[in-house]
Design a protein around this nucleic acid. Structure first.
Lengths: 160, 160
DNA sequence: TATTGTTATACTCTATAACTATA
DNA sequence: TATAGTTATAGAGTATAACAATA
């Protein structure tokens, strides 16, 4: 991809403006998150993980014994889609599905020792990715960024 | 429900923790953006638009006469995928594809008057959505939020 | 030889209905 | 009757290769 410069071979449109979209914080959130997502996916690929499989490991690690329905809700994905994710993690011996005697419909999910080890290594790599992404921010800026994002996340969306 | 609860409204499942993921600003960015995206998509649906078709209208409006390749680059999508988007917008008479005499390979994209009208109405609705989303933030918080996001967006990602 | 727009295609992600086995 | 997990499937979204027309 060649960059546009002030060369006469470029007809009349050297730079594309996104002024209308730039007035919106949500647009800037999307552009910033695209950069974060590309970098974190590259980091996780070294562990054979994607954002969703890493997140699943982290949630199972924080909540040993939870059910697939609970994990699906925590990841905000539909139950049918979670099945293949847990299949993959179980097939790689990172997560175990244990039957629950008190309710034989549900599985209790747990990290295997290998899953715990991979999660720990991946979490360290994601920490380094985070440091890279936020290196231009001082502590106060990052604190306000996080608190502002949490307020947006907590917005009570009302439909008209 | 057959278990005796201290609170009758409290479900019998414990709260799921996302403590490991919450240490990451990128995770909070994703959670916040999910809320923004759901709301803006609901807003745009009333105009028969999605985020990508609204963005395309906005970019064409800001850059009349640009080519499909330039629009694809501005939207960060591949050229083949843009074709169906422009097909849709052209089929609804929101955008016109005009032949360029100086380079007959390219199309000059422009809003039709109906496209300009729809863009203006949708932009007003998105402004109201933005006000809803950021209503918990004061001016300083929002300014720091935007500047922090722009710094993240500008992060120079280096691959090892 | 390179570029614009296009077709075809494939792979991922996501969403819904319906099934089974349990409760 | 309801719930957990599952299967099948369909719709988006996204990516690459290759082609015709044009430069």
């Amino acid at each position: 991809m060649d960059r546009d410069d002030a060369d006469s071979t470029t007809p009349d449109r050297p730079r594309i403006s996104d002024a209308t979209l730039r007035q919106f914080t949500g647009y800037t959130m999307k552009r910033a998150f695209n950069v974060v997502q590309a970098d974190v996916n590259a980091v996780l690929e070294e562990f054979g993980l994607r954002m969703v499989t890493y997140s699943a490991l982290a949630i199972v690690g924080d909540n040993p014994g939870l059910s697939q329905s609970q994990l699906a809700q925590a990841l905000a994905i539909e139950r049918p889609n979670l099945v293949v994710i847990v299949d993959e993690l179980e097939g790689r011996d990172l997560v175990s599905r244990d039957r629950v005697p008190t309710d034989r419909r549900t599985y209790a999910l747990q990290l295997t020792s290998e899953g715990a080890r991979l999660l720990a290594r991946a979490t360290e790599a994601v920490r380094r990715h985070e440091a890279r992404i936020t290196e231009g921010l001082n502590a106060e800026e990052e604190a306000i960024l996080v608190s502002a994002l949490k307020k947006i996340e907590a917005t009570d969306i009302r439909r008209s």
